[in-house]
Structure formats: C-alpha cells, structure tokens
C-alpha cells in the first residue's frame, strides 16, 4: 500500500487502485502519517528555488562575444590539419622523389619494389618457409 501511495503522486492510478488506497488511508493511521510526511517532503522540494549569481546574462553574452572573436576550430578540421595534412605533404614528396629518381610513376617504383621479380618472391618463400 505504501508503494501505491508513493506512486499516487506521480502516476494516474486506476479506479480500483485509487479506491483501495482511499480505503486504506481512512483505516490505517501509519499510512496517514506517511502521506503527511510525503506531502511535507514534496512541498519542501517544490519550494526550492535556485538562481545564478547576479549579471548571469551579461556573462553569457560576454562569452558569446569572446567565442565569436576567437572561434574554436572544428575538431575534424583540427585533426585534418594535424594528421592528414602532414601525411598528404609526405605522400606528395615521396611521389615527386620517385618520379625524379626512377623516371616512372608506377606503384612498384613508389613502393621501391620495381627491381623485384615475382619469381624471386616465390622462390624466396619456397626455400625459406
């Protein structure tokens, strides 16, 4: 019945539940006492009022103005600048180096395996593993 009483504050009870609770409240002094405590507790909580310190709106507007002056960087753009961009630069340098040193732009020459024949690889694997 105690659970039903607690639930009655936050949910709609069915007619049957409501009737049971009303009857129990009439007869049970402990339950009446419990209801009194819950009414008081909820009253205390409803009366709680909080406020920020004075000039809160001014502080918010100041922060907005500061943010607009110094916009924080998009995290993806930041990651791109820190990781992808240096990687891209390195790839371009490697590509140019390969083109100038071997005179070709094949994948083999970029990977440095243009002088390796497929037979060498299969023989190597056959005799060593």
């Amino acid at each position: 019945m105690l659970e039903l009483l607690r639930r009655s504050y936050d949910a709609t009870l069915s007619p049957g539940e409501k009737e049971r609770l009303d009857k129990a409240l009439e007869a049970d002094i402990e339950l009446q006492q419990e209801k009194k405590h819950l009414d008081k507790l909820r009253g205390l909580l409803e009366d709680e009022r909080y406020a920020f310190d004075d000039h809160f709106a001014d502080r918010v507007m100041e922060r907005i103005a500061t943010d607009e002056k110094n916009p924080s960087e998009n995290p993806f753009l930041y990651a791109f600048k820190r990781i992808a961009l240096p990687g891209l630069v390195a790839a371009v340098i490697l590509f140019l180096f390969t083109v100038f040193s071997s005179g070709t732009i094949s994948l083999d020459s970029i990977l440095g395996v243009d002088a390796v024949q497929p037979e060498y690889v299969s023989e190597f694997l056959l005799f060593n593993y």
């Binding site: 709680e48 909080y50 809160f56």
Partner: peptide, 22 residues
Amino acid sequence: DKVAFSQLVRRYEQTVAGVVIG
C-alpha cells in the same frame, strides 16, 4: 540581434539554474 538573445537568457536563466544548481 544580440539584445534579443540576452532577453531570452534573462527569461530562462532561472529554469536553467533550477536544473544545473539542483
């Protein structure tokens, strides 16, 4: 209009304070 936004902040700061300070 920034002034309009500061009016919104003033209007709802107590609602937000209730949640955040709570």
